[in-house]
């Protein structure tokens, strides 16, 4: 699904990613863990296409296409989804209107018919139930006045509506209480299929109790320094990131 090879990226001339290698196949869940400042969010930003980051070396192949060559919207239309760590509030733009626009732009890109009003409303009803998102929130302005938990649920709701091939969840667990965490994780698990894949970026092991990863990678100083099974997350939780730092040859 996605092949990241020797990815290097800068912001303001400072190198943050220093050669990431990662392959995620359909049906898999990968967790990327790492201490603050290790480059986790940079990785998700670079993959989603944030302009502030400059890729200086390496390649990313997404479903056979050169991902780095695509505009952010085309990456989304090809099936990439980023659940934001800090979802943006957009006053005046209704959640529903924006999602309909997004779905139809994606469909137009894929040479598909626009979604019918009936079909769309059916989707909204079904998908908002998936993350226990109040239907009223779906009609409100994007994230405006949403609580932290509602914002994160809204991210997963959007993910459900857009049915991506690859979802990247950037610190989706941050700021969530245990109930919200369970709801969000439950939503993600229900959306899992043999045809899609998920990358879970997190600082803590906690989320991985709910979303069970097939692989765990540890990011440190812009590189993946360790990979393993889900047990690696537990080991990290127990030993702390210093363990990795000390092991790291830097």
């Amino acid at each position: 699904m996605i092949k990241i090879k020797n990815l290097h990226a800068n912001i303001d001339g400072k190198e943050i990613l220093k050669g990431i290698n990662l392959e995620v196949k359909a049906g898999e869940v990968h967790a990327i863990m790492g201490p603050n400042g290790s480059g986790k969010s940079t990785l998700s930003s670079v993959l989603a296409g944030r302009e502030e980051f400059e890729v200086t070396e390496g390649s990313v192949e997404f479903d056979g296409k050169d991902l780095l060559d695509l505009a952010p919207e085309d990456r989304a239309r090809e099936g990439l989804f980023l659940a934001f760590q800090y979802p943006i509030e957009i006053p005046g733009v209704s959640n529903i209107n924006f999602l309909k626009t997004a779905i139809n732009e994606k469909r137009a890109y894929l040479n598909q018919e626009p979604v019918s009003a009936k079909e769309f409303l059916g989707m909204v009803k079904e998908k908002s139930a998936l993350v226990e998102l109040d239907a009223k929130l779906a009609n409100r302005s994007v994230n405006e006045g949403f609580s932290g938990g509602e914002k994160k649920r809204n991210e997963i709701f959007q993910m459900a509506m857009l049915t991506p091939k690859l979802a990247i969840l950037d610190e989706t667990d941050s700021g969530l209480d245990i109930d919200a965490l369970r709801i969000v994780a439950n939503g993600v698990n229900k959306l899992k299929s043999p045809n899609n894949a998920t990358i879970v970026i997190t600082h803590y092991q906690r989320l991985l109790d709910y979303i069970i990863p097939d692989f765990v990678h540890v990011l440190y100083d812009g590189k993946i320094v360790k990979s393993g099974s889900k047990d690696l997350a537990l080991e990290l939780e127990e030993k702390g990131y210093d363990w990795i730092k000390n092991e790291s040859p830097l």
Partner: peptide
């Protein structure tokens, strides 16, 4: 950028806003 990341073109996002 948020709207773009959901598949809406930059122009479309500007227009929406």
């Amino acid at each position: 950028f948020y709207l773009q990341s959901r598949g809406i073109s930059k122009k479309g996002a500007l227009k929406l806003m």
